[in-house]
Each structure stands twice: as structure tokens, then as C-alpha cells.
Design a protein around this nucleic acid. Sequence first.
DNA 1: GTGTAATACATCGTATCACGAGGTATTAGA
DNA 2: TCTAATACCTCGTGATACGATGTATTACAC
Lengths: 106, 106
Amino acid sequence: MDVQLKRGLLDVCVLAAIKSEDSYGYKIIKDMKPYMELSESTLYTILKRLEGAEMLTVRTAAHDGRLRKYYRITAAGCRRIEEFKSEWAEMMSIYQFVSREGDEHA
Amino acid sequence: MDVQLKRGLLDVCVLAAIKSEDSYGYKIIKDMKPYMELSESTLYTILKRLEGAEMLTVRTAAHDGRLRKYYRITAAGCRRIEEFKSEWAEMMSIYQFVSREGDEHA
DNA sequence: GTGTAATACATCGTATCACGAGGTATTAGA
DNA sequence: TCTAATACCTCGTGATACGATGTATTACAC
């Protein structure tokens, strides 16, 4: 998928991936894989950014001797998802503009 | 609309705006306004990029003593639009992922 | 028991890109 | 005569996705 097209979805996808249950880096990537692939470096950049924006909180916990950082969505994070859903209507109208201009000839 | 979300649409919107009829900078902005606002600096950057990618060709013509640069879409540009339409299916599945995770609780 | 893959985290540098600020020049109308 | 609209352009900045690279542990095959 085109990098530019992914840009607006990445943040919100990561939020969606931790919405119903706290999750950690490696698992987020695996859960998102069927929908969108992203590299570790990209994910950790995003997690840092979302933490800075207080859209999620972090908690470190040991698991089988390895440390895991569990991420939990905040109210602001949930609001971000809702905001995205509203923006989707705009996206649809833009898609229709492109689709229409691409098919018909005025 | 969120800047990041716009990113993947801008190129293809500009192509759509010149698809059915050759157009020029100022007109493209006005035609796109109902769907998406973009500044002149953004548009000219995009037009340069699309020209470099051979997705459009340029022709300069005088109009009322002023010079206008008319842009015409190429076959590659049309292909880009078709490609976008395919990618839209992926976008929809991502939207549904976000939407689902945001609404229900597993 | 040694090697390899998977798990799990992190940083740095680079390339891409949207956009504001600023610039030039002409025409139309108040 | 001044302002707004038309029409083009450039430069610098900030945001950001991602590859490359590094560290450490666990699991499993040979």
C-alpha cells in the first residue's frame, strides 16, 4: 500500500489495536498485519508520539523473564478514533470525486 | 481535515481535477475546494512532482495577456488513478478494522 | 551444547512532503 | 489610485515513515 495513503491511518490503527485490550509492540504489529504492515521502527515512533499526545499510557511488566511495555488507550485516544470516523465521511466524498472524474467525461 | 490523511489523496485529486479537461493551477484549486482545500505552494509542489513522474504534461498558453500553464493528464496519470481505486478497497478494510475495534469490545 | 529463529525492545539518519511566508506581474473594478 | 483577484513561483521548516542497526532473552532443532 502506498506510503502516503497509510500516513493518516497509522496512528488511528495503532489506537484501534489497543482499544479493546492493552497490548505491546510486537503483538500490535502482528494484529495489524492482516490490515496493514508496519515496521518496528515505525511502530515505536508512533507509540512515542501517541504517548506524548497523551492518547495512551505505558506500563512495563515482566513476562517470561522478558520485559514488555503494555500500552493502554486513554479518553483522548478514544476521541481520536471518533474524530477519524467523522473524517471518513470527507474521505468518501473525495474518493467519489476522484472516482467520478476518473470514469465519466463531462 | 487532518494533514496526514490528506497526503495520500492530494496527488490523485489533482490528477482527477485535470482528467476530463486540461486545467491550470488557479482553476485546479478552485475546482478542488469543495472537496479539499490546498494552498498554492502545495499545489505547485504537487504539479512539479507529477510532471517529474510523467503523470502529466505542461503547455503554456496566453490568456488575456496573462500566461497560463495548462496541465494534461498522461496514460501513466490515468493508471495512477486506477491504482488508487484498487487501493481504496484496502483503505475500506482498514477503516472497518478501526471502526469495529472502536465500537465493540471483544 | 551450539546455532538459529523468534520475541521484544530501542536509536539514528535519510528522504519525502505539505505548507506558510514571501515574491513577481497583470487585469478589473471601486 | 488603490485594492482585490488572477496567475505564477521559491525557500525553509517541521513532521514523519522506514531501513539499518543494535541489545538481550527464550525456544527449539541438530
